[in-house]
Simulated scan of single mutants.
Amino acid sequence: MIGGHLRRTALILSPWLAIVGLWYAVHYSGLINPALVPPPHAVAARFAELSSGRLPMDVLMSTRRVLTGVALGIALAVPAGFVLGWYRPVRVFVDPLVNFFRALPPIALIPLVIVHFGVDELAKTVILFYAAFFAGVIVMYEGIAQISPIYLRVARTLGANDREIFLKVVVPMTVPHMLTALRVALGVAWATLVASELIAAQRGLGALIQDAASFFQLDIIYVGIISIGFIALAMDLVLRRVARRLLVWQERMA
């Protein structure tokens, strides 16, 4: 038992230790100017320094913006995904539009967002909402469209009407897709965060990175990037654990 835990811990830590080792190797190799690649211990020292300064507030502001944008995006993506997945004519009509807007990078929309929504929190939320919605709606309607018709035929054979089929067959079978849509939307929102905080943000991890870039403070840039990555990773791990608990019935069916 202890040996199994040790092996699991080693497997989890190995890639991170490899990255740190590679990071040190690049810094000391001379292939790249060492000033352009601050060593991990320097970044860790800067992280400790910022942790007693502006970093907690930056993390809080960015997390709040991401969660707000994702919550609004998924709240609309789920019903929209149901409609697109359940009604094929609607999907055929709307699918090109969804894919067109999904392909537009949120950063390209910043000038229009500023014109229509100003430079306050609403503008940042709109950018994150846009990214989260189109990431989530694709996952939702593709998942619903792939539900095997055999489940619907069996339910209808047993006397279920359309409402019962939707509530007792379709909805439970789309829970995994809802959770996947939420995970994808969160990842896309964190990836879009820096772009959203280009809009006159005074606080936030994106603002921290941009302020550091203005003064060529590369260690702070690394702190901001690594913070975004670890927060996004932590949220994804929480969602995966929640998904395992909610989808126990699927394992029993399998």
Rank of each mutant, 00 (worst) to 15 (best):
E164L: 06
A181K: 01
V194N: 06
R203H: 10
T192L: 03
L182I: 13
G204Y: 03
V194Y: 03
A201F: 07
V170N: 15
W190K: 00
L182C: 07
P172I: 08
L208G: 04
L193Q: 01
G187N: 11
V171N: 07
L198Q: 09
M173L: 15
A195H: 02
E164R: 12
R183D: 02
L186Q: 00
P172T: 10
V175E: 14
V171L: 14
L182A: 11
I199F: 04
I165D: 08
Q210K: 12
A201R: 04
G187T: 05
G204L: 04
R203M: 08
M178Q: 05
I165Q: 12
K168V: 06
L198I: 05
Q210L: 15
T180C: 09
L208C: 05
G187R: 03
V171H: 03
W190V: 02
V188K: 01
I199C: 08
Q202R: 13
L205S: 05
L198N: 06
A191E: 08
L167C: 09
P172K: 08
V184N: 01
A185M: 10
V170C: 15
L179C: 08
T174C: 12
Q202S: 14
Q210F: 13
A201W: 06
G206S: 04
L186F: 00
M178K: 00
R183T: 07
V171R: 02
I165F: 04
V194M: 06
L186H: 01
A207T: 14
A181R: 01
A181Y: 01
L179N: 08
T174G: 10
E197P: 12
F166G: 11
P172E: 11
A201Q: 11
M173A: 15
R183F: 10
I165S: 13
T174Y: 08
A207S: 15
S196L: 05
M178D: 05
Q202D: 14
L193G: 01
G206L: 02
I165E: 13
H177F: 11
V169Y: 07
P172Y: 03
L179P: 12
T180D: 06
A200C: 10
V170G: 15
W190I: 01
L182E: 07
F166R: 07
P176A: 10
V169H: 11
V170S: 15
I165L: 10
V184I: 11
V188N: 00
V175Y: 07
M173E: 15
H177K: 09
T174L: 09
L208M: 09
G204S: 09
P176W: 09
L186M: 04
V175G: 12
L208T: 05
M178C: 10
E197V: 11
A181C: 05
D211H: 12
A191C: 11
A207V: 05
V184K: 00
L198R: 08
S196K: 06
L182W: 07
A200M: 13
G187Y: 02
L167P: 03
A181M: 03
P172S: 08
G187V: 06
